[in-house]
Amino acid sequence: MGGKEATTGLGNTLVDEIEARNVWGFQISVSAPKQNLAQLYRFCFLMLGDSGKAQEVFQRTLHEAARRAAREGLPNERFWLFRDARWRCLEASETDLQAEPLEIEEQEITAGTASQIERLEPIQLAIWISAAPEPQRTALAFFYLDEFDHREIADLAELKLSELSRLLAVGRRQFQAWLGATFPERPPV
């Protein structure tokens, strides 16, 4: 995750750009950067594991942002779009069928994992992450978005840094176990 340091600002940019419209009380036309809105959609997708639902939450979040910008102005809070989207995702998944809490198997990460992951479809990853219990689901979605640093993720997911670290470590091992069961490593030729 070499990009973490470099990408921490991107989350800000989205919020800052939208806030920039209200700086002098004039509604200035500024298009939000594509990169960040794309990331917002991907976040919704990872949280919900369903393209349709993700799109619905994504659009509702942006409609709400537009409504607030036009009326009372946007909140002076970093990453509020992502925070807002997260709550909407939690709300949306409340109505879904909930997975029974299970003791999920864990497995150490192996050298061949990267090639196993390459064989996955994004939807498979999204379904796996969206099925994780809260707040692990939020932590994993934010972390693999490669958009925020650890402190920002901890803030967004309302976790302590140590808690976040533990959830990510457990998540990796669980995902590895699932990978091992679903896509067994090819025997070396």
Partner: peptide
Amino acid sequence: QGFDRAVAALVRAI
């Protein structure tokens, strides 16, 4: 690191 990079690449491919 390889694991995280691969997952992040998969996310970018959404």
